[in-house]
Amino acid sequence: MAMANPLLQVRNLVVEFPTRRGTLTAVDDISFDIAEGEVLGVVGESGAGKSMTGAAVIGLLEPPGRIASGEVLLEGRRIDNLPYEKMRRIRGKEIGAIFQDPLTSLNPLYSIGRQLTETIMTHTDMTPTQARARAVELLAEVGIPAPERRVDQYPHQFSGGMRQRVVIALALCVNPRLIIADEPTTALDVSIQAQIIALLKRLCREHGTAVMLVTHDMGVIAETADRVAVMYAGRIAEIGPVREVIKNAKHPYTHGLMGSIPAIGHDADRLEQIPGSMPRLTDIPPGCAFNPRCLHAFDRCRRDRPELIAVDDGQVSCWLYDTAAGRTTAEAKAIVASRSGTAMERADG
């Protein structure tokens, strides 16, 4: 899908892990854009490649993981091949990150004020006094009571929810254009998850920050994302506006996933809508990786790998939507919606 002025463009990204038993492809040729100020939700089962995609964008793949091919562009500038030092200056300043576990994201030996000021001073010309004032301001902004006092305290003096607020303050402290939030609430109490998501959403809207929000939680996606990408076995199964994907899922996998939208706090993982499980990277079937679990799979699905096809306002990688096969989009959607194998065979025949 062509976007007028995308902030982030990911083009044919491939992430590989060379191992003793051959090369594993964790992210397999995926492309997507994120617009200025947009929230892109990324969902998919564990191991689908969500975190690796985020790590590749921010240049923090851990060796031996590496970008084998493809490009990442920020405001039209390639950033995937920058030297370490150049990329370091982009991290934190233009692309921030929030990780899963707030309990371990902060260095236990430094006060949170020190961790905030060092980040601020790394990326700006502020003096220590200015940076400290800004740190206090930020803590207030993320909803930490008595920030003047709390700024000098250490991570162990904060609860999990409060620590994630501090982590958000750290990620946003020099106003990056894009935040990669990798399951920012998974490790938290269910009662606190909604607060943190609301905070993240509010701050990013106020600052015009785009977000790549990785989560298991369909409820979070429904409430927060503008668009959503559904990943399966290292590829994008479907990507499109959040309403479309949730209410009107086109890919059989998404359709199964969206069978019902639970409230915030439920994992897509735990919904057992679709029998079977995602294949391991070592034995991804030929053709469409979803075909062993797909109700509608037909011959071609086991032979050729589907690429993303533009459908309505989004894209879907499923042979049902291949217009060359002489099927209309409406027919394809009807097949997926029917959730029955016989309907499929009719369409195929």
Partner: peptide, 13 residues
């Protein structure tokens, strides 16, 4: 550890 990973993500030298 995660805090080193996060320190990298913050762009520290």
């Amino acid at each position: 550890t995660d805090y080193i990973k996060f320190a990298r993500a913050r762009g520290l030298s």
